[in-house]
Amino acid sequence: MKKSELVVAALENGTVIDHIPPDKVFDVVNLLKLQEMTTQVTIGANLFSHKMGRKGIIKIADRYFTDEEVSKLSVIVPNIVITTIHDYEVTEKHHVTMPDKVVGIVRCLNPKCITNHEPVRTVFNVTDKEAGTLRCHYCNKEIYSYEIKLV
């Protein structure tokens, strides 16, 4: 068994989140509140990847994520791969992409935006899915993926 495979060794039931950009691994941990989990969580950071150079991977035992959680994830880490495993078998594997609209997840970075002054659910239109660029539905400010802050 090769070293990198060792790290992601077999999971009986649970979820594998793969192709995480190396600097986003702990954002994923925080977003999914993995630090509060009681089941086994394996976090691999800075692993070698043919495609990305370095990547992160997280395995969570006995836990599956809702569409809403996945949708949140897709905003901070677009283009990840989520695999669900039941009884050592891959039951589902999908490349997560950003939705067309991001509602109630991201904070607007414009201090003069109404959403930072009134209890308004933020709404962003995704203007570039590949790059992860958002535009505020209220003030029109563009937010680039590297700037994204969650509400």
Binding site: K112, I114, C139
Partner: peptide, 22 residues
């Protein structure tokens, strides 16, 4: 504030005319 008129139009039962938002 920017986006104030858009937000107002979403909560208001009567039409909103934006006369400038930031």
């Amino acid at each position: 504030l920017e986006g104030a008129a858009r937000y107002a139009s979403e909560v208001s039962p009567v039409p909103i005319i934006n006369a400038g938002d930031g």
